[in-house]
Simulated assay, not measured.
Amino acid sequence: MKPLKTRISLLLLLLPMVLLNAQGELKSVEGYSPNIGSMVYMLEDLKDRITEQVKDLDQSQTDFLYDSNPNSIGALIMHLVSTESYYQVATLEDREWTEDELASVGVAGELNAKVNSMLKGEPIGYYLDLWDAVRKKTLTLLKTKDDAWFASNIEEGLNYHYIWYHVMEHSANHMGQIGTIKNRLPK
Rank of each mutant, 00 (worst) to 15 (best):
I50F: 10
D94Q: 15
W97A: 12
N35C: 12
L65Q: 15
V81F: 07
K27N: 09
E30M: 07
V54K: 05
E99M: 12
N71H: 14
D63F: 09
A75W: 13
S85W: 03
V81M: 08
S33V: 03
S33P: 03
G37D: 02
A22Y: 14
Q23I: 02
L80D: 03
V40E: 00
L92S: 11
D58M: 01
T98A: 14
S28R: 01
D67F: 07
G74P: 12
V40Y: 01
K47D: 05
T51W: 12
T83S: 13
D45Y: 10
M42N: 09
K27C: 03
L80T: 02
D58S: 04
S60L: 11
K55F: 09
S33T: 00
L26W: 05
S28G: 06
D48P: 01
L43A: 10
H79G: 05
M42V: 13
V29S: 05
S85Y: 12
M39G: 10
P34C: 02
G24C: 02
S60G: 00
K47L: 07
E93R: 10
A22L: 14
D56I: 00
T91Y: 06
Q88K: 13
L80C: 08
I77L: 14
K55T: 11
V89W: 04
F64S: 09
I73C: 08
E84Q: 14
T91M: 14
G31K: 00
S85N: 12
I77H: 03
Y66F: 14
Q61P: 05
I36K: 01
M78Y: 14
S82A: 15
I50Y: 10
Q59C: 02
P34L: 07
V29G: 07
S82R: 00
D48Y: 15
S72P: 11
L76D: 04
R95A: 10
K55I: 00
P70V: 12
G24I: 11
D56N: 15
T51N: 03
Y32P: 05
S28M: 06
H79Q: 06
V29A: 08
Y86Q: 11
D63H: 13
N69Y: 06
F64Q: 08
L57N: 13
S68V: 11
E84I: 00
I77T: 02
N71I: 04
